[in-house]
Design a binder for these strands. Structure first.
Lengths: 121, 121
DNA sequence: AAACTTAGTATAGTATAACATACTAAGTAA
DNA sequence: TTACTTAGTATGTTATACTATACTAAGTTT
C-alpha cells in the first residue's frame, strides 16, 4: 500500500472496503497496542520526560501497581514502542524511553486531541 | 483549549505536560470508546455502507454474537458515535449509521493507517 | 397450524485484565 | 546489624469482557 496516500485517497479506499483484509489491519493492530488501562498514560509520561526510570513512572502515574507497570512496559517494549536500558550498578536502575516508532504516534494523538476538543464537552 | 492549535503547538504543550489534567483527557476518552473487540470493525463497516441493519452488520462481522453486537452498538450509541433508527413495521427493522461525531474519526484512522504502513511489517 | 421474518433479550459460563499484598537481590549508609 | 536503595517477581483474588445457547414478539407467507 502507498505510503504517500493522501487523506482523500484513503477515504475513497475505505468506502470501497479495500482494507477488509483483516488480520493485519493497522488500525486494529494499533488499538490493540494501546489497549489496557495504563498504556497511554505511560506513553504520555514518556513524551513529557524522556527517558524515565521505573520508579519515576510509578510516581507519575497515580494508582498503578508494580505488576501492572511491569506488564504494560513489557508489552509496550514487545510492540517496539518503548525501549528499556538497564544499568548494572548498585542499586541497579533502568531507563525507559520512546522508540522512534513510539514517537511517531504523536500525530495520531494530535488528531485525537483535535477531535476531542470539538466533540467532547 | 484552542481548536485551531497546530501540530507544533500541540507537541510543545505535550512536552510541557499541559494535558495532565486527567479525567477528561480526549485521547483516553476516545481510546475507551474504541476499546473492545468489535467496536472498530463496526465503525469500519458503517464507513463502507451507511446505513446498515443489525442483521447486515452481523453478517459482515464474522464471529460476532448477538449479545456483543447489541452491547457494542448500545455503547457506541451512548458515546454519540452511532445513531439508531427504528422502523416499526412488521417485521420491524433498525438502521444504524455513523453520526457526524463518528465520521469525524476518519482523519484519526487515516493517521493510524499511515503509521501502520510505516511501522507494521 | 406451522414456519419464517427482524432485532434483539436472558441466562449462565469462560477467559482475560486488573488489583492487593508480600517478597527478592545486592550492595551502601547509619 | 539494621535499614535503605532500585526494579522488579510471585501468588492469589476480584472484576470485567467475552462467548454460547436458547428464547421472545407479532404479523406474513405456505
Amino acid at each position: 500500500m502507498n505510503k504517500n496516500m493522501t487523506y482523500e485517497e484513503y477515504v475513497e479506499k475505505v468506502q470501497k472496503g479495500i482494507f477488509t483484509d483483516e488480520g493485519n489491519c493497522p488500525v486494529i493492530s494499533l488499538l490493540l497496542m494501546l489497549q489496557g488501562k495504563w498504556k497511554f498514560q505511560i506513553i504520555y509520561e514518556l513524551c513529557i520526560k524522556n527517558p524515565m526510570r521505573f520508579g519515576e513512572l510509578k510516581k507519575a502515574i497515580e494508582g498503578i501497581t508494580n505488576t501492572m507497570l511491569t506488564n504494560s512496559l513489557r508489552e509496550l517494549e514487545a510492540d517496539g514502542l518503548v525501549s528499556r536500558i538497564q544499568f548494572n550498578e548498585i542499586p541497579p536502575h533502568v531507563e525507559y524511553s520512546l522508540t522512534e516508532k513510539g514517537n511517531a504516534l504523536l500525530p495520531i494523538f494530535y488528531e485525537m486531541t483535535m477531535w476531542g476538543l470539538q466533540y467532547i464537552p
